[in-house]
Amino acid sequence: METLLSILVGLFFMIGTYLILSRNLLRIILGSSIISHGINLLILTMGGLKTGGLPLIGEKNVTYTDALPQALILTAIVINFAVTALFLVLSYRANKVLGTVDIDQIRGNEHE
């Protein structure tokens, strides 16, 4: 199962990098969000997909599940949502003011 998730992480990184290298501002925002999802899966895969009991005192379980990767991923999801919302608002404002979402036209390189 870890191998399948590792391949999926690589696929997310590949798609996100492809989208970030495009000229459209919305594709760049979507690419950064997809890379963030790939990082979340990478953290989950690195933490291991083990099954075990709850880490509670007084329980007689031999194996425990580490809750740290899930806590890190939950925090990363919230931060990713906030950053994506900020990027979308900035791109909307850039579209209203400049009339385009093309990166070359925003920079002022209109010779293309």
Rank of each mutant, 00 (worst) to 15 (best):
54 L>G: 00
17 T>A: 11
32 S>L: 15
58 G>F: 14
40 N>A: 06
75 T>R: 15
45 T>R: 07
88 L>C: 02
110 E>I: 13
107 R>L: 13
64 Y>W: 10
95 N>R: 09
99 G>W: 14
38 G>M: 07
50 K>M: 04
8 L>G: 00
78 V>C: 14
6 S>P: 01
25 L>E: 01
112 E>N: 14
26 L>Y: 10
104 D>E: 14
60 K>S: 05
50 K>L: 04
59 E>A: 08
104 D>G: 09
109 N>I: 14
78 V>N: 11
26 L>D: 00
32 S>T: 15
68 L>C: 04
5 L>V: 06
111 H>I: 14
103 I>E: 06
110 E>H: 13
74 L>E: 13
65 T>Q: 09
25 L>Y: 06
95 N>T: 05
106 I>H: 07
69 P>D: 01
51 T>E: 09
77 I>A: 15
111 H>G: 06
48 G>A: 02
87 F>T: 06
85 A>Y: 06
67 A>D: 03
27 R>M: 07
91 S>P: 01
14 M>V: 04
10 G>R: 07
19 L>S: 04
93 R>Q: 07
107 R>I: 14
75 T>K: 15
18 Y>P: 01
34 I>H: 02
78 V>K: 14
19 L>Q: 11
99 G>S: 05
22 S>H: 12
107 R>D: 05
46 M>D: 02
86 L>S: 06
59 E>Y: 09
23 R>Q: 08
73 I>T: 10
63 T>L: 13
96 K>M: 07
112 E>A: 10
5 L>R: 06
62 V>M: 12
25 L>D: 00
46 M>V: 07
23 R>N: 07
8 L>A: 01
41 L>S: 03
70 Q>S: 09
105 Q>I: 11
75 T>F: 15
112 E>M: 12
54 L>D: 01
88 L>E: 00
64 Y>R: 06
45 T>N: 09
23 R>G: 00
23 R>D: 01
90 L>W: 04
40 N>S: 09
16 G>T: 05
10 G>M: 03
61 N>R: 08
100 T>Y: 13
43 I>P: 04
66 D>T: 03
1 M>S: 01
16 G>M: 05
33 S>C: 07
78 V>G: 09
96 K>T: 02
105 Q>E: 12
95 N>E: 10
110 E>R: 15
12 F>I: 04
100 T>P: 05
86 L>N: 05
8 L>R: 02
33 S>N: 11
